[in-house]
Simulated scan of single mutants.
Amino acid sequence: MMDDLFKTIRQTETLGPGAAFLPGRALDQERSLIETIETIAAFSPLRRLQTPGGRQFSVRMTNCGELGWHSDRSGYRYESVDPLTGKDWPDLPQEWARLARDLAQEAGFDGFTPQACLINCYEPGARMGLHQDRDEEALESPIVSISLGVPALFLFGGVARTDAVRKIPLLSGDVVVWGGRSRLFYHGIAPLKPDMHPLTGALRWNLTFRRVRAQDSP
């Protein structure tokens, strides 16, 4: 069951300069998004990646789009081919790209055209430590993040790891967009508490849309 933090009034909120919380904005597409995730994962299976230091992520991941985010002993980077299958990543669905563009526009970022979507699967206890999304060249483009499935606590800090961190409750269909001066703010997900969702069971899914190269680059 949801704790009191998830029972607070839910409304569009500015989280920082260029960062917005858009509650429920993807809820109408919830079922379609989840069904498409399953199709994508059938071609590029979910996997637990390693950090450069050799630790294993608690979150399982895959990608779709021109490029896919990857991590191993060699470092964090984007790959045009899935290292697991040796094949191109599945295409980024056009309806996903349109949705990401519209959500970015609502948050004040016009003309967003994602090249990659990182798909994260959280099981109970899985987490994402505070980090910056800085492996992209196109830091002028925002990050668009869609939450699906069981509730989670999104941690949103500042430009330094030691800055104060806000806890934003996320329900299925909620969206967070951050760019501009907030583009390199630290963020993460608190350990996922056991819960159930009618479409995903005990799982939480996260779609994170990124522009990797500058808008005028291929």
Results as ranks from 00 to 15, higher is better:
206 N>L: 12
3 D>C: 09
165 V>A: 12
146 I>L: 01
24 G>C: 03
117 C>P: 00
60 R>W: 03
44 S>G: 05
89 W>C: 03
112 F>C: 05
175 V>R: 09
105 Q>L: 15
85 T>L: 03
98 R>K: 12
194 P>Y: 01
172 S>Q: 02
126 A>Y: 05
153 L>T: 09
140 E>L: 11
193 K>N: 09
4 D>M: 14
33 L>V: 03
152 A>G: 14
65 G>S: 08
108 G>T: 06
22 L>W: 13
47 R>P: 02
34 I>R: 09
32 S>K: 15
180 G>L: 08
12 T>F: 00
144 V>L: 06
146 I>R: 01
159 V>H: 10
9 I>N: 05
100 A>L: 06
124 P>G: 00
82 D>R: 02
162 T>E: 05
166 R>L: 14
27 L>R: 09
178 W>H: 07
87 K>F: 14
126 A>R: 03
77 R>D: 02
92 L>M: 02
156 F>L: 08
199 L>V: 02
120 N>C: 14
25 R>V: 02
46 L>F: 15
78 Y>M: 13
142 P>F: 15
158 G>N: 04
118 L>F: 08
49 L>C: 03
35 E>D: 05
163 D>G: 01
186 Y>R: 12
4 D>C: 15
211 R>V: 08
188 G>A: 03
180 G>P: 00
143 I>P: 00
133 D>W: 13
30 E>I: 01
200 T>M: 03
116 A>I: 10
182 S>E: 04
211 R>C: 11
212 V>F: 08
109 F>A: 02
77 R>F: 01
71 S>W: 05
183 R>Q: 04
190 A>D: 11
3 D>P: 09
69 W>M: 08
216 D>I: 15
159 V>P: 13
30 E>S: 06
155 L>T: 12
98 R>T: 08
142 P>H: 06
136 E>P: 02
171 L>Q: 15
9 I>T: 12
61 M>D: 07
162 T>V: 15
87 K>Y: 15
